[in-house]
Computed example of a mutant assay.
Amino acid sequence: MDIRHLKIFIAVAETGSMSGAAKQFFVTQPSVSQVIKELESHFGVLLFERLGKRLFITDSGRYLSRQARIVIRQFDELEESMLNAGRTESVRVGSTITVGACLLSSLMADFKKSNPEIKTFNYVNNTKMIEERLLRAELDIALVEGQIKHPDLVIKPVIADYLVIVCGRRHRFAGQQQIKIKELEKEVFIMREKGSGTRKLFMDFIEKNGFNLNIGWEVTSPEIIKTIVMKNNCLAAISIRLVEEEAQNGDIYVIKHNEHSWNRTFSLVYHKNKHISKGMLGFMNVTQAYGNTGIITDVPVGMLI
């Protein structure tokens, strides 16, 4: 078995066919079939179920797919570093949408100050998509606000955050010091898309308290969410870090939960088998320097009870 075996196997897993992988590698379909047979013989497991003309990857195949991507990425990194010794290092950083909106630009600016020689690629999406890219070795490290539970990923909490409910200055909740939880049932909410860590945290709270939520909007962009809140008399659950300016100038009114149920942390995430490069270490150091700073405390707020 060599690295080419694994690359062909990944191609079969991604395309779902021997012929698709054969086209990618400019070989015959029987050659691809032989590679899969050799891998199955080597590991003593069935990697694909063959039903008619279709292939279905097995649990063993899915496990090998995850691990093979890491091995291939490490091999490619080794080859690249040996061929380009002394040239520019690169790091691929992922962040969830909330982190991307409120922190990523500042983080990367600070990173470039201390690591000007390192090239960076940044990818912003929801927690689910970031997790998938880390597992496929398409990202080196990420900063996320959602929960990640995959056993192959290392999670290190680094930056404090919490959710708040926000409304516009003309909303009936604006200026109220106390709002009862049941009052939320009467309101229209803007929610992040499924796969968002912000949405999951808030929906877990809703389910725990046993009431219905009227979701009138589903939006991926924090800036659009804030605009809708201010112009359409809706409510939204959002990171406190995203509404600092609007809360301070009075365009948005902030409502906290009195039991701190929406407290969370932004966490660094990377694969457990990942080699910690200089670029990854530099990004870790920058995020840890942010610590508990940046959460506003000097604006009037309401309290959900």
Rank of each mutant, 00 (worst) to 15 (best):
V269R: 07
M203Q: 14
E245D: 10
D298T: 10
V12M: 00
M82V: 09
A160F: 10
T297A: 10
T198H: 11
A101K: 07
N263H: 10
A137C: 04
M108V: 09
N249Y: 14
V219P: 08
M108N: 08
I36S: 01
P116Q: 01
M1Y: 03
E259N: 14
T88L: 08
G210D: 04
L184W: 07
K278V: 11
V27D: 02
Y123G: 01
I141T: 03
G279K: 07
S239T: 02
L104W: 02
I57H: 02
A85L: 03
I70W: 12
I57M: 13
P157G: 11
I179E: 07
G61I: 05
K23T: 04
K186M: 09
I70R: 15
E259T: 11
G94W: 04
S17I: 01
A109N: 12
L153D: 13
S239R: 03
E218Q: 14
V254M: 15
L55M: 02
V91H: 00
M284N: 12
D161V: 05
K113P: 09
R50I: 01
E40H: 01
I224R: 15
R4C: 00
Y63H: 06
I305L: 14
G216N: 03
A160I: 08
Q24T: 11
S114L: 08
M82F: 06
R170N: 15
L103D: 11
V286S: 09
V144S: 10
H171I: 03
E79A: 14
D298P: 02
P30F: 00
I215R: 05
D251T: 14
V71P: 05
I224Y: 10
V91N: 06
M280C: 03
A247M: 04
R69Y: 09
I155Y: 07
G197F: 07
Q34V: 05
E117V: 01
I252T: 06
I224H: 13
I238A: 04
V91C: 04
M82P: 00
D140W: 10
L46I: 13
L281N: 15
R170S: 13
L213D: 11
S65A: 11
E246N: 08
N285A: 13
L39T: 01
